[in-house]
Amino acid sequence: ICLRLWRPKSGTADAIESGEAVVFRWGLLLIPVTAFCLGTWQVQRRQWKLKLIADLESRVGSEPVPLPSNPAELKELEYRSVKVRGYFDHSKELYIMPRSRVNPEREAREAGQLMSTPDNGANVITPFYCTDLGVTILVNRGFVPKKKLKPETRLKGQVTDEIDLVGVVRLSETRRPFVPENNIERNHWHYRDLQAMAKVTGAEPIFIDADFRSTVPGGPVGGQTRVTLRNEHMQYIVTWYGLCAATSYLWYRKFIQKIPF
């Protein structure tokens, strides 16, 4: 009798079970819906990133403007071409390393290959006194291979005359994960710390990448501005839409066709 009293009615049990099944059924549907929303969001992010890259490349190729005398204005001019006139102080060279030479033609040719043949070396950063502004700035003259790192190996390229120079404004960098700290004592720099570089050389924290036309025979190869932003959105799009398609198919087989797995 007690067992019969405590035994739940079959209708109530079925209702509870049916309710749980409904929640489970529609809860699982959230997986493909969420994946679809994330894939669509990545499509929008990719369009935004491609437009940003195009804008940066347009800035680099724009007509150069005079370097502003107010350093605060430079924050709005990154990747913008500027022109200055002055001369280098080769006695205070800095070296950002290791670096590979920017070569768009080679990079396009080797795109998709498992192995590439980059040139290993450094970018040479040299103080440049701007005679028209009366300030010293930092100029990335360009790339040199390891064997040409020491100035005495490229004396022909150490220009001393007053020259006109065109370059691209660059701002300071923060150290990324796994990038070593700058070794100021050994003059090995791994990222652009403009405040530290300015302190070592006595220059202002103003930095430009000299363009390719600034290259002189025997000297660093200019034009080392790499306009690249991480653009892995296509991989994410394929991943999220693929997950949406797979889970939608499984949900359809399970709850519409009622085919057991």
Rank of each mutant, 00 (worst) to 15 (best):
I184K: 06
E152R: 09
T201Y: 06
Q42K: 09
F128H: 01
I137Q: 04
A203N: 02
R99L: 05
G157Q: 08
L250K: 03
R176N: 14
I137D: 01
G223V: 00
T34R: 11
G157N: 04
R46L: 03
V159F: 07
S116I: 15
P98I: 12
T160Q: 14
R186L: 12
F88M: 07
V227F: 07
L67R: 03
Y79K: 02
E204P: 03
G202E: 01
F178A: 14
N123W: 07
D164N: 15
S18T: 06
V238L: 12
D55L: 06
S248I: 00
L250A: 12
T34L: 15
V33A: 14
P8M: 08
Y95P: 09
E63D: 12
Y191F: 14
L29F: 10
A210G: 03
F88P: 01
K75H: 12
I256A: 01
Y249N: 08
R170I: 00
W41L: 04
R106M: 12
K148E: 15
R226A: 11
K258W: 07
F212L: 11
V135N: 05
L52Y: 07
R85I: 05
A108E: 12
V221H: 09
G27Q: 02
R25E: 10
A111P: 01
D14R: 07
L165R: 05
I259F: 06
R192N: 10
A108M: 08
S214M: 13
C2A: 13
L28C: 11
Y95W: 14
I53M: 07
K49N: 00
R109T: 08
V168C: 01
K83S: 03
E181D: 15
D89L: 06
V179R: 09
R253I: 08
A122T: 01
E20W: 13
V168I: 13
R176W: 14
D193E: 13
L229A: 10
